[in-house]
């Protein structure tokens, strides 16, 4: 029998997008146990964390492909398809950066100088907090579609994105503090190690950056 009427309704990308962000966050979250293990020089635990991050990242990647293939051009949505794809891309970057960080740490058997261990963990936690806030905001996406991106729900999401911005600036501040701390130690450490420490700090900062860009993307959806 003709089920054409039901064919009109395309599959909604909302739940998969939310799930994707969830995975990306869980991926970023592993950076906390990873660096805690680095501080303790527990290399088995570090390797474990990296494996978890790798698995989650590839799960996110697969999911990204699937969401993309379910968003054909002929789909008519309340928001531009390009904006949703862009959101997906930034979400994916959060997971990617977490993987880059973990890869670098394991690849170089990186050790944290004791003097910067505490601020370093603090900085990682703040970056991960930004990712968590990004997930919290993306979890409102279904309600945003329900309300047509207007009214009280839109205001709620705006306030969530504002909090996300605040976390990202906090992480920025911690990052420059950390760089200052590392600068003072530079002369005592092997130069190559210092170089890569800076690199890890930058990449970890980017986790928060991309989390913030998730918020920017959500705001753009609201602006339409």
């Amino acid at each position: 029998m003709a089920n054409y009427l039901s064919g009109i309704f395309g599959s909604s990308p909302v739940a998969p997008l939310q799930e994707h962000m969830d995975i990306a966050y869980r991926c970023a979250r592993q950076l906390i146990p990873l660096f805690e293990a680095v501080v303790k020089k527990d290399w088995v635990a570090v390797e474990d964390c990296r494996q978890t991050i790798r698995d989650l990242e590839s799960e996110a990647d697969e999911m990204k492909q699937e969401i993309r293939s379910n968003l054909p051009k002929s789909l008519f949505m309340p928001v531009p398809r390009e904006d949703l794809l862009e959101l997906l891309l930034v979400q994916d970057r959060v997971a990617n950066r977490a993987k880059d960080v973990s890869g670098l740490v394991v690849g170089r058997k990186m050790e944290l100088p004791e003097a910067i261990a505490e601020p370093f963990i603090k900085f990682v936690r703040c970056s991960v907090a930004a990712a968590r806030q990004a997930r919290k905001s993306v979890r409102e996406l279904d309600e945003l579609f329900e309300t047509g991106f207007r009214g009280a729900e839109a205001k709620l999401v705006e306030s969530m994105v504002a909090e996300l911005d605040r976390l990202e600036s906090e992480s920025d501040a911690l990052q420059s503090e950390l760089r200052g701390g590392l600068f003072k130690l530079e002369s005592e450490l092997p130069p190559v190690d210092v170089m890569f420490l800076y690199k890890v700090i930058d990449l970890t900062g980017e986790v928060a950056d991309f989390a913030e860009r998730v918020g920017r993307r959500l705001e753009l959806l609201l602006a339409h």
Partner: peptide, 22 residues
């Protein structure tokens, strides 16, 4: 009815409408 459904879609009411099916 299809016209009406599209109208709701225009008001940003429906998450995804398959225009190729329409």
């Amino acid at each position: 009815l299809v016209g009406a459904i599209l109208g709701v879609g225009m008001a940003r009411g429906i998450t995804a409408i398959n225009l190729s099916v329409v």
